[in-house]
């Protein structure tokens, strides 16, 4: 279980001038030290200019974030507390922005879900957490709305994160904003 404590975080060794990129070091269970990067990115030419995607992970051989690796951190609580602190810093400097988390796989989505669910009391003064589900419209003739390819026409629908929802009912996408 991830326990967020914003008073127990790693120090940043690099912060970009516009607060969208951070690097810090974490100790793994085998005692090696690894650099982790946290990055907030807006998709170029996106129709959602105020939504920034959160990605984090170690560097791959090309210097990009490898967000699919599963590292065994000695102190996962401190790693995630650090990422949340950086997120709050980013939002304080960009208060009109929402941060979005896709969850590269179910394992990560499950982790985010549990992290938000079990740390609500610690986070609610800082962040507003939103879950996004995808729905398809039921038409009057009893069929569902289809897209041009004949597939179900799904649309994203955000709602306040339901803290009663368990991890067998994950949201497809998570968002958070500054609670200001």
């Amino acid at each position: 279980m991830i326990k967020i404590n914003l008073e127990d975080t790693f120090e940043a060794i690099y912060v970009s001038p516009n607060f969208d990129q951070y690097i810090f070091e974490s100790v793994l269970k085998d005692s090696t030290i690894t650099q982790l990067k946290v990055k907030f990115t807006n998709i170029a030419e996106s129709l959602l200019p105020n939504v920034y995607n959160l990605a984090f992970g170690p560097f791959d051989s090309n210097g990009k974030i490898n967000d699919s690796v599963n590292l065994k951190h000695k102190d996962s609580n401190k790693v995630f507390s650090t990422i949340i602190l950086f997120s709050i810093t980013f939002l304080k400097n960009n208060p009109h922005i929402s941060i979005g988390i896709d969850g590269s796989d179910d394992l990560r989505a499950n982790l985010y879900h549990r992290m938000f669910r079990y740390n609500y009391k610690n986070l609610k003064d800082f962040l507003v957490i939103i879950g996004v589900d995808w729905y398809v419209r039921l038409l009057r003739n009893g069929t569902i709305e289809l897209d041009n390819n004949g597939l179900a026409f799904f649309k994203p629908k955000p709602e306040p994160f339901d803290f009663q929802r368990k991890t067998n009912d994950l949201y497809r996408y998570y968002m958070f904003n500054l609670n200001q």
Partner: peptide, 13 residues
């Protein structure tokens, strides 16, 4: 050098 992956939300709008 970082590239940007399009997320599920962006893809669906």
């Amino acid at each position: 050098k970082e590239s940007t992956n399009i997320d599920n939300l962006t893809k669906s709008i």
